[in-house]
Design a protein around this nucleic acid. Structure first.
Length: 218
DNA sequence: CTCCCGATAT
DNA sequence: ATATCAGGAG
């Protein structure tokens, strides 16, 4: 397990590698961010960003998403994948925004997770990015990086990972570190072919050392 | 746990 | 061909 010194080493190096890491989903208000994050489930940011400009040109408010047929929303987001679930969730989510929150995105974690298609991860992203609250949204990258670096065990659930990170990382560094871990996971500590040989964190990374030994045998 | 799902990199 | 992508609902 990681010592406090190890964790400080990790946080400092992540800051050095990605000083300006931030949300890469293009959006111009909290409603657009919410929709973009819902759409981003099991899809790349790059793909979502190809679809959302045209989408937000057509649908500017919750009322706009509710005014058309379900199939029309499906067609407009089809390329992102999982489009049947996402279209249904988005329409229900928009109905709830209109009925419960006067068409606004609530600045409240519990109210966000109760929306259709919004889970812990999405709610945390909106709270952090749109409302500036300290949060750690555990997505596939944060989970993988946390487990490889040794923040937690491989069998830990997403919720366990989130709790562990919140305990081991100072609250005022949650949001920045969270975005830096995503960049690190997306561009360096990749799922498929992680670049361990050039990794500044190699000396404290159990998984990285294991991979290096395998590389030496070739 | 399974299912949803198209786009992209390997 | 196959793994993976800012997950969530049933």
């Amino acid at each position: 397990m990681l010592t406090k010194k190890d964790i400080r080493f990790i946080l400092d190096n992540l800051e050095r590698m990605y000083p300006d890491a931030e949300c890469e989903l293009t959006h111009s208000n909290e409603f657009e961010l919410l929709i973009a994050v819902v759409l981003s489930a099991q899809a790349t940011d790059a793909l979502v960003n190809k679809v959302t400009p045209g989408l937000f040109e057509k649908y500017k408010t919750p009322e706009d998403f509710v005014a058309v047929d379900l199939e029309e929303v499906q067609n407009d987001i089809r390329r992102i994948g999982l489009y049947r679930n996402k279209a249904k969730n988005i329409q229900k989510l928009c109905r709830d925004l209109i009925e419960k929150y006067d068409g606004e995105v609530p600045n409240d974690y519990q109210q966000l997770v109760n929306l259709a298609g919004v889970g812990r991860k999405t709610a945390n992203v909106v709270m952090s990015v749109s409302f500036g609250m300290p949060a750690i949204a555990v997505d596939t990258h944060v989970e993988r990086v946390s487990k490889r670096l040794g923040f937690c065990r491989w069998k830990d659930s997403v919720l366990e990972v989130e709790k562990t990170l919140m305990k081991k990382i100072p609250e005022d560094e949650w949001s920045d570190t969270h975005h830096r871990m995503i960049f690190f996971g997306r561009y360096h500590c990749k799922a498929r072919n992680p670049d361990c040989p050039s990794c500044p964190l190699l000396e404290i990374c159990r998984e990285g050392k294991k991979r290096m030994k395998k590389l030496e045998m070739v």
